[in-house]
Simulated assay, not measured.
Amino acid sequence: MKLHRESKGTITVATLLFIIIGALAIYFLEMWSLVIILPLLVVYSLVFWFFRVPNRDILDHKENVIAPVDGKVVMIKEVEEDEFIKGKAIQVSIFMSPLNVHICRYPVSGKVVYKKYHPGKYLVAWHEKSSTENERTTVAVESLTNHQVVFRQIAGYVARRIVFYCKEGDDAKAGHEFGFIKFGSRMDVFLPLDTEIVCKIGDITKGGLDVIARMNAE
């Protein structure tokens, strides 16, 4: 199983803790040490599972908006996007549990025209205000269909580290990686009002594969 590059520090710490706690359990509890070691082994295995990198065949897209993450669609609504679009947009939010793949992918192809990191709170990721009050990043892409598309990584109650690798001027390719969020979190995508939304609340998405909307070329 291939592991994400962001796993190195976390797995190093998890391995050291597993060895230390396991050794102490064996030393002090002897035959009862399995009561500690077995649950610890499950948690240790979940750390590896969290940082997995699945093999996915990413296609080229122009008008399709692709799910940026694995997770569950929890919100589709018209909102005011005040940071970049500065007007009304359709917000599609996808919540990721700690068991989901947490690679963050471009939802559309085009050119990165804006990026910014915002420190903030750690409200639960499904809280509506987390989009504007939590630790988050904002990226905007001028799409191949000549639309401005904004997407936002949002830290949740558990997630405390967001990384994004893109720079202004980079070519964005729908379905390809631009960042990562450690543990439970959310991704918001802000689309033009005339966008055709093809997903619905409750849908389970696979990042880089599933189409969540379509935009006609202007």
Rank of each mutant, 00 (worst) to 15 (best):
F180P: 01
K167H: 15
T138A: 13
C166M: 09
V141E: 07
K116C: 08
Y106T: 04
V198F: 09
K116A: 09
D60Q: 11
F95E: 09
L38Q: 07
I85K: 12
S109V: 08
S97G: 11
L193I: 13
L144D: 12
N55C: 01
I212D: 04
R160H: 07
I90Q: 03
C104H: 01
E83W: 10
K86F: 01
R105S: 00
I58V: 11
L16S: 14
L46G: 08
Y117Q: 06
F28M: 03
A25N: 07
E128P: 15
I20G: 04
G120V: 12
G156Q: 02
S45W: 12
S185D: 01
T15P: 00
M75R: 12
M187F: 00
K8H: 13
D82V: 12
L123H: 12
A125P: 00
W126T: 15
F183G: 01
H102R: 04
E168T: 14
G202H: 09
Y165Q: 04
V42G: 07
V150M: 11
I58L: 05
D194Y: 05
L34P: 05
M1G: 14
R214H: 06
K2G: 03
P107I: 04
K129D: 15
S97C: 11
I204F: 11
S143W: 05
F183D: 01
S131E: 05
V69F: 00
A89R: 10
F28V: 01
E81T: 11
V69A: 03
K2E: 12
I94V: 13
L24A: 15
K129C: 02
G9P: 05
V108L: 06
C199A: 15
K72T: 14
K206M: 07
N134Y: 03
S185F: 00
F18A: 13
T137E: 09
D57W: 05
D70S: 12
E78Q: 14
L41C: 13
L38M: 14
Q91F: 04
E81R: 08
I20D: 06
M31K: 12
V139E: 02
N134A: 08
L99Q: 10
V211K: 13
P98G: 11
I66Q: 03
K72Y: 09
I58Q: 02
G202D: 13
E63W: 02
G9N: 14
L38F: 15
E80M: 15
T145N: 10
I36S: 05
I20R: 03
W49N: 15
I11Q: 06
G175A: 03
F164E: 07
V79T: 14
H127E: 15
D194I: 08
V198M: 08
V65N: 04
E135C: 01
G208N: 00
V141C: 05
P39H: 10
W32S: 13
E128M: 06
V53S: 06
I181F: 00
Y27H: 14
Q153P: 00
R52T: 11
K8I: 15
R152Y: 02
E83T: 15
A14I: 07
K116Q: 15
T132I: 15
R152W: 03
H102D: 01
T12I: 13
K116Y: 12
S143Q: 06
G120Y: 10
V42C: 09
T138P: 02
I212F: 12
G175H: 02
V163H: 00
R161T: 09
Y165D: 10
H147L: 05
W32K: 13
V79H: 11
G9K: 13
V149C: 08
Y122T: 07
L38S: 14
I19H: 05
V47N: 08
I181R: 00
D194K: 14
I58A: 03
